[in-house]
Design a protein around this nucleic acid. Structure first.
Lengths: 248, 248
DNA sequence: GCAAAAGTGTTCCGACTACACCCATGC
DNA sequence: GCATGGGTGTAGTCGGAACACTTTTGC
């Protein structure tokens, strides 16, 4: 049972010293409601101990044969129906005793959380209500005390969101196929804050980068001059890849 | 045995579906040999299957009661004696079948690697030879095919090193208490490449930032004008924190 | 003196800031 | 007309790139 193959380190070490882990995936799922200028995060209500009655990040335990990323996508698809999204791994939280269940377990099973960060298109995202479990978009500034260390994970995810938005084209993963520069600006303002940049400078900078294609089609939304619809040109963006591109 | 507390997801799910994990920590440990202008990574030779005879990143399995970070520091301290270093979590690699041992195990135990990235002071680092296991600094451009997915992890770590060096003051964690601006420049050139910046511009930029304190002491190394020894002033750096500081 | 390395200064140019201003629509 | 939002232009400024130049040492 405990043959040579079971040993990894050079000096023979009893397997009993090693921790056994259940690995969970917790997702920080963001969405931007451009109508109301709000940055939202998806939370679910827990109906089991520990932390029964607390809101938490949507998560799951990783199954056999399932990759971490697959698990992250599964959590997401169990909670919302959405086509356009960006998802990446965030950080792994794995200190002992971050999960109260550890103490109760004679064999010292540890619970580790590989957190992921996602940005989804709000207009398109349809929450899946399974009858019992609560699920809701929370404005970021009204998030309550969450289960486990999920507040910490959420903060970490928020930092990542801001960085990604500044240095990567993830906004286009979450905007419609065509969009106005006003839409794009709104998205940035909602996440980064009102004073991150002047609109006309933002506009000039982005157009100069050359990967936004003007479709020529105009759209009118209520009062004001109709806006051009633009399209993100992935091919034209290629050269900008790797290069730090700053929207600040 | 499988009571209510054992269940996490809303719909009852058999625990047998969940994967059991052993969690490993693999470290990408970098060091800069400024004498020879080489970027080095620490590798150890494997003496067990799988991948017996291959070089690999130094790693270990996480023990009971041990945090991920603790495990990372333990690996490091088992391989080298060093006082000054920077260490942070890198990424978690956890796809199924990334470790050949998984297939042989009837219970489908998975091996997950929480990789860490470290930068240590080369002059001070003393390798710990334990008699049997090979251990060596490899120049980054001469790294062979490594065990597992360690080449991929190494690449990921190298990207992180470059980013950190550009945006964080980690260089000062790994330089002596006092150093010349030439030393600092050498470090940057070795990691980022010859053409990352002109020396005098690099110099002017850093001095203007105001967190390098001139000790007044001069040092002469062979020919050439003696250089001032500088000290990193952590207090003066505080305001620069968070702000993106670019050395490019 | 000469080479080598440290340190200073200067010019050019592109990029970002902060506005002012024109354009096209709904009402 | 006028409010509203889209779109363009410009003057001032800051900072980085490139490179010339000076200073201080060893030999």
């Amino acid at each position: 049972m405990r043959g040579k193959l079971q040993r990894k380190v050079a000096d023979p070490l009893d397997d009993d010293l090693l921790a056994d882990f259940k690995v969970g995936v917790d997702n920080v799922i963001f969405s931007v409601d451009t109508e109301q200028n709000r940055l939202l995060v998806l939370l679910v209500m827990r109906h089991e101990d520990p932390y029964m009655g607390y809101w938490s990040l949507p998560g799951t335990l990783v199954r056999q044969g399932e990759s971490l990323e697959d698990a992250a996508y599964r959590v997401l698809s169990e909670k919302i129906r959405v086509h356009n999204l960006y998802l990446e791994q965030l950080y792994t939280f794995g200190g002992p005793s971050r999960d109260p269940r550890e103490a109760k377990d004679a064999y010292g099973v540890r619970y580790l959380s590989v957190s992921h960060f996602a940005l989804v298109r709000f207009a398109e995202a349809e929450l899946i209500a399974d009858g019992v479990s609560g699920i809701a978009w929370y404005p970021l500034n009204r998030v309550p005390r969450l289960a486990f260390d999920h507040n910490e994970i959420l903060n970490y995810g928020y930092q990542r969101l801001r960085n990604k938005l500044e240095y990567s084209p993830i906004a286009f993963d979450v905007l419609p196929e065509t969009f106005t520069l006003g839409d794009l600006y709104q998205l940035y303002v909602t996440v980064l804050g009102e004073d991150f940049s002047d609109y006309s400078n933002f506009r000039a900078r982005l157009l100069k980068l050359g990967f936004l294609e003007d479709t020529g089609v105009k759209t009118s939304r209520g009062a004001g001059r109709p806006a051009s619809l633009y399209r993100f040109d992935a091919a034209a963006f290629e050269p900008c890849k790797d290069k730090p591109m700053v929207f600040i």
